[in-house]
């Protein structure tokens, strides 16, 4: 039995959506702190441009495209739920998850190549940031995928359908972080 507290909505915003926004706020400051630290270092070390050349811009750009497309499918899933088509929403969530998987596979090959060339996480502070920032982001991608599979499963059985919107919002946020990471880690000279 759910507490009455859960059913109230004094602000008019559903509780779940409110909570996800606060989660996103707390995540923004985490990534904000990490990226601000990186940017301060980057400004202080112009020579890091020589290291960032060795990142694979093509893989990064492709992955940006992958995530943006996946976000599009997340939006579609949300729309499908709004239209009451839960089966379709579940399917679209799985498609989104699939794109997440593509992202991770690309990352895997990208990183293995870089590590082979000796650009490991301890090579210097640029690479430390590179792997840490992208790694924490990657963990968020994985977490998002697990949640999406779980939610898709519920939605297929017409349970907790409001969560489609919530996971979509979270997924957009994860994409957005990558949209910041990509230029900062790969492109910035």
């Amino acid at each position: 039995m759910k507490p009455i507290a859960t059913t109230r909505s004094a602000t008019g915003i559903p509780t779940g959506r409110l909570a996800v926004w606060w989660v996103i706020v707390s995540e923004i400051v985490i990534f904000g702190g990490l990226l601000a630290s990186y940017i301060m270092h980057r400004i202080g070390h112009p020579e890091w441009a020589n290291y960032s050349i060795h990142t694979n811009i093509y893989a990064g750009a492709f992955n940006t495209w992958v995530l943006l497309t996946s976000s599009f499918f997340a939006v579609c899933a949300h729309n499908a739920v709004e239209m009451g088509n839960n089966k379709k929403a579940a399917k679209l969530l799985m498609v989104t998850t699939g794109f997440g998987l593509v992202f991770l596979v690309v990352k895997f090959f990208e990183w293995s190549h870089e590590i082979e060339l000796g650009y490991t996480i301890t090579a210097n502070t640029f690479w430390s940031f590179y792997y840490t920032a992208a790694g924490i982001h990657g963990l968020h991608v994985i977490a998002g995928m697990i949640l999406m599979i779980w939610i898709a499963n519920d939605v297929r059985q017409n349970k907790e359908v409001q969560r489609v919107e919530l996971i979509a919002n979270y997924w957009h946020f994860v994409d957005l972080v990558w949209v910041f990471l990509f230029p900062l880690l790969y492109i910035a000279k």
Binding site: G32, T122, S128
Partner: peptide, 28 residues
Amino acid sequence: VGPLIAGAVMMFMDQVIGTTFYDPSAGG
């Protein structure tokens, strides 16, 4: 607390796998 959580992750990696976020001799 967010930035400090990020900072703690960096510190942990410095301690455990030897990254150099806070080590001036390697650019930290």
